[in-house]
Amino acid sequence: MPIDAIDRQIIEATQSGLPLVEQPYVEVAQQIGISEAEVMQRICAMQEKDIIRRIGVVPNHYALGYKANGMTVWDVPDEHIAELGKKIGTLEFVSHCYQRPRFLPEWPYNLFAMVHAGTKEEAMQQVDVIAELLGDMNRQHDVLFSTKILKKTGLRLKSK
């Protein structure tokens, strides 16, 4: 485990949000019974270890007008996927880009890229941009739009 019991308490105290008070790290420190300095030092260490991806506001896509969030999936040759993935990842409307396993024959796609737009039409134009970029390397592709959020919770550590 890359974290110890105190890190874990910090995570539990902040995973649903940082306190909205002038000295939030003092409040977290008091909850746990350690000093503010230690809380800050441990949070910085977790940032360095990439356990904390970032600290800041997390916008709600829908509320910001990004109503068309498409999961685009592509079947590209495995031997070229790294260079293609990096290219697609730099597009400003792509938020995540991953290689994932195929399940043949029913699921031939190995490259996933999430696109975000105001409308479905705009999202489909983004798909065209990706298709053009991939050219011949794109053997087939599909776009899956979410039609309903069935569940949404953040990371939840269970108390031990």
Binding site: G17, L18, D50, R53, R54, I55, G56, V58, G154, L155
Partner: peptide, 13 residues
């Protein structure tokens, strides 16, 4: 906003 604060990575925990 859906939340505000540190964003943890479960895969690094």
């Amino acid at each position: 906003l859906t939340r505000f604060g540190p964003l943890y990575r479960a895969d690094r925990l």
